[in-house]
Design a binder for these strands. Structure first.
Length: 858
RNA sequence: GCCCAAGUGGCGGAAUGGUAGACGCAGGGGAUUCAAAAUCCCCCGGUAGCAAUACCGUGUGGGUUCGAAUCCCACCUUGGGCACCA
């Protein structure tokens, strides 16, 4: 028996795995392949507990799959482009490239001690020219296939930073960093045609059986399919080039309640009219100036401008409706024009009341209650709850009772039959704008030529590399704007088509592009093409993908789109168009927050390591404890994995992040919990190394111990396969207790200890190897086949059956497992409590569930 | 506003129609020790009772069932996603 020294054990076994090449993934056909992937990290420079949790889960799966005879691919890389590197360069000089690669080295050094089963030979960073050069090749192929295009788009422009801001970077209409008033600018940008795939991306969700329902639902909502009617109102008096206004509606059954037409300020008709209507031009300009932030939209008043135009109602040509330009109508959804039905839409009702337009209900509740008032009589707009039946007042098919949905379907049918428009399906999903006016990203490989226009770069000129310096001088990132734009020479090039002097595109790609295909690149990370079809064909798909729920929509949707695009451009096989067979979204690691107040009563936060027993270690001042939240630097509620590994070892950190909560939920890191995890591992070490040298002879306790062993094998295996890591660990605790108390002979205890070591090996691989060796086993536990439970050992010969009387447990009997039902019933009725309860009467019914329970109904 | 999920001891949670609270943390008691650390043992949902035991108990109210934390309906609370989307 020896003391548990994690540092020693972990270094020793990591070296042994390395030397055995245990995690090198090599294509071979004698085993089924298994590709497990955790979402790759951004190289911030420090690993955090969230990484530890994420990679530990992946590691458990990878190691378990190795043990069950799979050929496992478990790679790691770096999502290395992005703003933080430029921000760091801006804040403290230096170069984004140096900063990023330095961070990668630091983080790799922090990750390696975790003992993850990663094939490090496949490592890459998305900022490696070898990677982004292939991404540029991919872009060119997509361009050729028509999957990428250029168009004008309105963006948030920060005039101080001279860059485009994402919506999330605009706060109260001002740039989040500069504080400058954000302008809406129209720029020519590159877009991926993801919206062409809307229907397919939506329908294919149904096939993703091993994805969380929640993620599929979020994607479905994001894609946003709606069924409606598209039709036109004809203008009473046409305008040059315009004689009708196309509208789209999901509520065609309200058409007979229409009272106005609304068009977007960006609608072609509005644009044309503002040319010779200064008032309208001013109104439109005002609308365009309005920000797009949620807060602004919330507050903004619904405003309209009467254009003076009139249209005819399609079902009654004598019925004329006014045309308003309205500030709440979006040009890029539907047709950019609506008809307003105030009776059944609160916003339209508010608008109608403001501009004194008629209100006409087309339907009302089938059974209006006392408190129901028609909107035309001053009530609210009536929108029926989904399944509710309504009575049509001005519908197309008389005053029928129908649910809203039936009403819509029959309205579409009626309109189609009468030549008024057609039923159409629309999607909320927009094309994906990928242009970013930033330096630290993948350059878009196109050239602008005065005579040829936009020309794709030649593939042999790839990669188009980012310049490291400018004119021999280091790039100054403190100057606002994109360094590529002001670089003295980088932009200059020859037109790939005509050879004349031309300029490079200076925009770089959205970093989401980088992460949309890295999983495919891992299958052949050094290939001279984006992928190697043979390798991709073997390793794809990712069998298990693990990451945070925050990527439920964008990253996962973009990746699904990219896999399709890569198939269409010949870079992935058909079977890989849904790249992730199974997805698991893990919860965060949280911690309590410790706070004191400064003299001005402002909160001051303290690191957990500076607090003990609710007091600051340094001064003894009491801290206020704020409930657990996601670990964040600003709240200082962070625990550094490196210091935990230093204090307790990687196995303890791994054991703890798996043990306390179900993996999809948040887990609270506590010092006591970590301490307890360590103590448990030390106890297992003590127990097993003690067993290794014991010599008690076989005895009557052997079978009971071995039964428990087989039950534990069964339960832990099930737990690992179903992501029930916390429950699996609970079983291992229980089995450890059983083993510690067992008086079985040395051989049985040895066998049980071997099983314990194997079952723990995915979670605490170093300790497991140490135990395996101490028990005299040959080879590595990581290479030993996973133990298989003997079904005949899972059930005891004698079972204790609870006896219920009217569903309440009143007694129990001990009977042979396979005892006849009628005999069980006889014994149950003979139980004292049952005899007493029956008091001589006959039971009304006796339910016997063999091996589980008996219920006597009186 | 629309859509979705979750509510179980002091805490994290287990049980997915069959003995509610496994396992862990915190807490209490004890053994060992000169003492401490470490370790080991016992108790630990509530109410009543010396106890055996009884009754209550999985957010609230109803329902289905021999039997419900689990299935159904309504409500409450919390969390998440989307949102001038026509």
């Amino acid at each position: 028996m020896s003391r548990y020294s994690a540092a020693e054990i972990e270094a020793k076994w990591q070296k042994a795995w390395d030397e055995a090449g245990l995690f090198r993934a090599i294509r071979k056909n004698d085993k089924p392949k298994y590709y497990v992937l955790e979402m790759f990290p951004y190289p911030s420079g420090r690993i955090h507990m969230g990484h530890v949790r994420n990679y530990t889960m992946g590691d458990v799966i990878a190691r378990y799959k190795i043990s069950t005879g799979h050929n496992v691919l478990h790679p790691m890389g770096w999502d290395a482009f992005g703003m933080p590197a430029e921000n760091a360069a801006m804040a403290s000089g230096g170069h984004p490239k140096d900063w990023t690669y330095g961070n990668i080295d630091d983080m790799r050094a922090q990750m390696k001690p975790l003992g993850l089963s990663i094939d490090w030979s496949r490592e890459f960073a998305t900022c490696d020219p070898e990677y982004y050069g292939q991404q540029q090749a991919l872009f060119l192929d997509m361009l050729e296939q028509g999957l990428v295009y250029r168009k004008n788009a309105v963006v948030n422009w920060d005039p101080v930073e001279m860059t485009v801001l994402a919506n999330e970077q605009v706060e109260n209409g001002r740039g989040w960093r500069s504080g400058a008033l954000v302008e809406r600018r129209e720029l020519t940008q590159w877009f991926f045609r993801i919206s062409d795939f809307a229907e397919e991306l939506l329908d294919a969700l149904d096939e993703l059986d091993d994805w969380p329902a929640k993620v599929k639902l979020m994607q479905a909502n994001w894609i946003g399919r709606s069924r409606g009617l598209q039709f036109a109102f004809s203008l009473v008096e046409g305008l040059e080039g315009h004689d009708r206004i196309e509208v789209y509606t999901t509520r065609p059954d309200t058409l007979m309640g229409a009272s106005f037409i609304g068009i977007s300020p960006d609608h072609p008709l509005a644009r044309q009219m503002e040319k010779d209507n200064a008032e309208l031009a001013a109104f439109n300009a005002e609308c365009r100036r309005m920000g797009t932030s949620e807060e602004e939209l919330e507050k903004a008043e619904k405003k309209g401008f009467d254009t003076g135009l009139r249209v005819r109602h399609p079902f009654d040509t004598s019925w004329e409706l006014p045309v308003y330009v309205a500030n709440f109508i979006l040009m890029d959804y539907g047709t950019g024009a609506i008809f307003g039905c105030p009776a059944h839409d609160q916003r339209d009702l508010d608008f109608a009341r403001k501009y004194d337009l008629p209100v006409m209900s087309t339907y009302a509740p089938a059974n209006p209650g006392d408190d129901f008032t028609l909107p035309e009589d001053g009530g609210d707009a009536y929108v029926p709850p989904k399944p509710e039946k309504v009575r049509y007042i001005k519908g197309f098919a008389g005053d029928e009772l129908q649910t809203g949905e039936q009403g819509i379907d029959s309205a579409i049918a009626f309109c189609e039959e009468n030549g008024v428009g057609q039923g159409v399906t629309k999607f909320r999903l927009r094309d994906w704008g990928l242009s970013r006016q930033r330096y630290w990203g993948c350059p878009i490989p196109v050239v602008h030529c005065e005579s040829c226009g936009v020309v794709p770069e030649k593939k042999e000129n790839l990669p188009i590399q980012l310049p490291y310096d400018e004119g021999g001088q280091p790039i100054d990132f403190s100057i606002p704007g994109n360094p590529l734009d002001r670089h003295p020479t980088w932009r200059d090039c020859a037109c790939p088509a005509c050879g004349a002097p031309a300029r490079r595109e200076t925009d770089t790609m959205d970093t989401f592009v980088d992460s949309s295909w890295y999983f495919a690149r891992f299958t052949a990370p050094r290939a001279q093409t984006p992928t190697d079809l043979e390798e991709a064909g073997y390793w794809m798909n990712v069998d298990q993908y693990i990451g945070g729920i925050e990527h439920a929509i964008l990253h996962l949707l973009y990746s699904r789109f990219f896999a399709r695009a890569m198939h269409l451009t010949g870079h992935l096989p058909q079977k890989a168009i849904e790249p992730f067979n199974a997805l698991f979204t893990q919860g965060m690691v949280t911690h309590e927050i410790y706070q004191t107040r400064d003299p001005k009563d402002r909160p001051v936060y303290h690191l957990p390591e500076d607090v003990a027993d609710g007091k600051l270690k340094a001064t003894g001042e009491a801290v206020e404890i704020i409930p657990s939240a996601k670990m964040s630097k600003s709240k200082k509620n962070v625990v550094d994995p490196v210091s935990i590994i230093g204090a307790y070892g990687a196995d303890t950190a791994r054991w703890f992040v798996l043990s306390d909560s179900p993996p999809e939920r948040d887990v609270e890191w506590t010092a006591a919990g970590a301490e307890a995890a360590f103590k448990h591992l030390a106890r297992v070490h003590r127990l097993v190394t003690g067993i290794a040298v014991s010599d008690e002879p076989a005895n009557d306790h052997d079978t009971a111990l071995l039964r428990e062993m087989h039950k534990t094998i069964h339960d832990v295996t099930g737990g690992v396969e179903s992501f029930g890591f916390n429950a699996a660990i609970a079983k291992l605790y229980a089995f450890t207790n059983t083993l510690a108390k067992s008086q079985a002979g040395a051989q049985a205890r040895q066998q049980a200890a071997c099983a314990l070591a194997q079952l723990m090996s995915p979670m605490t691989p170093h300790l497991a190897e140490e135990l395996w060796a101490a028990l005299g086993q040959q080879g590595l536990v990581g290479q030993a086949p996973w133990p298989v439970a003997d079904d005949s050992m899972l059930v005891d010969d004698t079972v204790t059956l609870p006896i219920q009387i009217n569903g309440k447990r009143r007694a129990e009997i001990s009977v042979p497992r396979d005892m006849d039902k009628s005999e069980v019933e006889k014994q149950a009725l003979a139980a004292d409590a049952v005899i007493k309860a029956l008091d001589g009467a006959q039971p009304r019914k006796v339910i016997v569930v063999p091996g589980r329970i008996v219920n006597v109904v009186i």
